[in-house]
Simulated scan of single mutants.
Amino acid sequence: MYRTKRIAVVVPAMNEEILLPLTLKGIPDYVDRIIVIDDGSTDKTPAIVNDFMKNSDKITLIRHEVNQGLGQSLIDGYVKSLEDAEIDYTAVMAGDNQMHPDDLKVLLEAIIIRNLDYVKGNRLLQPDVFEKMPRYRLLGNSLLTILTKFATGYYYIMDPQCGYTVIKNTALAKIPIRKMKKGFGYNADILCMLNIQGCKVDDVEIRPIYGQEKSKIKLRKYIPEVSALLIRLFFRRLWKRYIVRDFNPLVLFYGFGFFLFFFVVIPLLVRFFVLFNRYGQAPQTTLIILVFIFSFSFQSMLFAIWMDMDYNKRRQ
């Protein structure tokens, strides 16, 4: 137990025969239950877990005969944790030994003492992150951080791709966790669910660790898939949070801004270039109307963003 709270740790793993033993050995003794999800491994990962289970009754193994994605592994781990009514908090530590076990205490201190519903790690605040994190990951993470802020409503959250998290099981029981994204992008999906339920979320500084692990993310597939997901989450949050659960006029400003941009600004922009190409000079009237309407659209969306940020800040 940690501060009289029972802790479970979900460990998703796929073909981690080299690093999984280090991960399991590093999990602190105060953890009450370890749930390992073998996501269709073809190496010795299942056998390694079985060997650990012989010496510890804390460990439970859930096997996927075929790979189902990281999101599905976490869903199964979360559901298994919820089945144990004595568990108070559920953490996630990847099986590639990329999450320092000492940082689990930092996450637990934050969520328990501050009475949060969900807390996640933030590697971007470390002064040496530029040296430890590969540049392409750092750039992609920074861009996705900005997009995720809009999609989830947690504008103060950074490093949304960090999977080192702890969730209170009472909050976990409130959200439709079985509907969470099965593949990559689950991070933003669960944050969006928590925002809709009005849960208190924050992140804490943890250390970035990069060593022998190999990223399973394929950027060509990952970037468009996650971008499309974030757009869907944005509109889902607006609908469920500000229309279904609690009406807020910010949706009108968002709607007005989007309408002007897609149905007025873009057609005017097309007309501008058609006339410019035909007559060889900029059509002044079209240009004036275009700038005027674009300003209205931009200001409307800025005002909606400000209202959205203020609303979520007050709820926290």
Rank of each mutant, 00 (worst) to 15 (best):
D117F: 03
C192K: 14
D189R: 00
I209E: 08
L191G: 05
G211E: 14
G95P: 10
Y210G: 04
C199L: 03
E131T: 03
A188I: 03
Y156L: 12
D203G: 07
I175S: 09
I190E: 03
S142T: 11
Q197A: 11
A85Y: 12
L108I: 00
N169E: 12
K168N: 09
V92P: 12
D88I: 04
I206F: 04
R135N: 06
F130S: 11
Y210H: 11
Q98M: 15
Y210C: 01
A91W: 02
Q197M: 13
N97A: 15
A188K: 06
L108Y: 09
F184P: 13
D88Q: 01
P134A: 07
L143K: 04
I196A: 04
L124M: 15
D117V: 01
R123C: 06
Y155K: 15
D128C: 09
Y156R: 12
A91Q: 07
K214Y: 09
I196F: 05
K200I: 00
A151N: 13
I175Q: 13
E205D: 09
L191K: 08
R207K: 13
T152F: 09
K168L: 07
R123N: 07
V204M: 06
P208R: 14
L147Q: 10
L172H: 06
E205K: 14
E205Q: 15
K132D: 07
I177K: 06
I196V: 15
G183T: 14
D96F: 02
L108R: 06
N97E: 06
I206R: 04
L143Q: 02
K174H: 00
N187Y: 11
L191A: 06
Y164F: 00
Q161E: 14
A91F: 01
L147P: 12
F130C: 13
T152G: 05
L147G: 13
L138Q: 06
D159T: 01
Q126G: 03
K120Y: 05
K214H: 09
G95K: 08
Y186D: 15
T152C: 01
R207N: 10
L125C: 03
K181A: 05
Y210P: 01
S142W: 05
I190N: 01
F130D: 13
Y154C: 10
T90L: 02
